[in-house]
Nucleic acid binder design. Sequence first.
DNA 1: ATAGGAATGTTGATTTTTGTTGAATTGGCA
DNA 2: TGCCAATTCAACAAAAATCAACATTCCTAT
Lengths: 251, 251
Amino acid sequence: MSKYETMLLQTVDMRGTVSVQELSRILGVSDQTIRRVSRPLVDRGALQKVHGALVSTKSAADLPYLARMNLNRDAKVAIAGEVVKIIQDGDSIAIDTGSTSGFVAQALRNRRELTVVTNSAYVASTLAMIPGNNVSMAGTQLRDHDGASFDRSAFDVIERMQVDYVLLSASLVDARKGFLVHEQCEVDIASAMLANAGRAIMAVDHSKFEPQLRKPALRQPTLKPGDYLVTDRAPPADFTGLFADLEIRFP
Amino acid sequence: MSKYETMLLQTVDMRGTVSVQELSRILGVSDQTIRRVSRPLVDRGALQKVHGALVSTKSAADLPYLARMNLNRDAKVAIAGEVVKIIQDGDSIAIDTGSTSGFVAQALRNRRELTVVTNSAYVASTLAMIPGNNVSMAGTQLRDHDGASFDRSAFDVIERMQVDYVLLSASLVDARKGFLVHEQCEVDIASAMLANAGRAIMAVDHSKFEPQLRKPALRQPTLKPGDYLVTDRAPPADFTGLFADLEIRFP
DNA sequence: ATAGGAATGTTGATTTTTGTTGAATTGGCA
DNA sequence: TGCCAATTCAACAAAAATCAACATTCCTAT
């Protein structure tokens, strides 16, 4: 019936809500066509319609975890787009927890035959339902605010897998101390993933370069030369020393 | 018959969707030929056709699980509403995989302090992010079409937990044979959950009472007297014998 | 070499999709 | 409330894609 369906759904699910106007620009068709294409989708419940815009039914908006996902949404969408350029069909990747990782998982639904290991239930369920993917959930008991696991079995699973890439994130980037997070368990998981991966991809949006109220104090494991740093705009000048060995990517 | 078939399939699967025009340029034949070659492929389901283009059936576009969630949506929402009336804040519950379970998980986000064990990554991630819940994901390797796990560690986790309720589902209800599903592993998980739970809640929408194209053959474990049967409308008369010992709930 | 059959290209009629226009509806605001 | 701007809808025209029929080419067995 329509070839724009997939792209439309994808865009709306990714961004949560997007106006008809914007959609018509993105897909390069008239607004009337957007309405025509979206009507059957709305009828069968795949989308919701409000005056002037379409909103996703996939609860992207109302998951508490995704409250944070609405923070700096555009930046994270941009980062996800860059990360997807690095990952190819058939690659294997370990993904840590975090809101940026959630977006990357969404974007990775365009890739096929991925092998994924993650300790985030959200990332796992997002990618597990793509036909052809092979997804392993690391861990059993899930932390309540973000649905991630850090128990013993999580490490067992991660240490069994050998992957091409590992996607890591951080809560703050300090020009001297490097990539920082709040909890030791997050560092431990990152270390375990890093030990069993080829190249690392550190994904941080520009807000992580600025000072924050609640200061994280724990240092992520240091990256190897040649690892990626993906962000949404050029990092401030005083960080160039820290990133000397890294391959920096931004739109 | 088909010297282009493999090349055509390969191209389409690789790119997800490609127009007839482009295909004819790539293979160096006329657009008419593309249509002729692709028709048998479409007929036997190796490809999908939309106006102007061919799309891969392996496409990330149609998520089988989420697609099923839009089937009989109203019935499943109604059932979820009934199930939520049974479960109280603070209860513990085991939840199996299946589209109805997905809706129940959505509805259970209104309850607090739940203890949940499930082998479905979707259910786990839905409920894990509610503050105060305690969610355990049973299993590691996730089945690709619905993100559920049936491996050894899934049973280990389920057998460790003692819960008040277990939510089960079925693919078909037969007046003589009872509740049927397609796969043995689903029966095994249901049995394990049932063995460690107080009361069972069997959730099936009315469409499961009607004959189906693809007939499941495996019998779910028999329920105990006093277990719940939740559905969206009164079941047909010839099932009353089967449900004699059960407490039946519908809106 | 050549006739027969299968595969491919070409043409024109038909169908589907898309863009545009103008009227009707909706939402927000004074 | 009544007005304005934005959005939606219906109808038509234009463009693109599809189909069926026929012409052409390619291959192979005789």
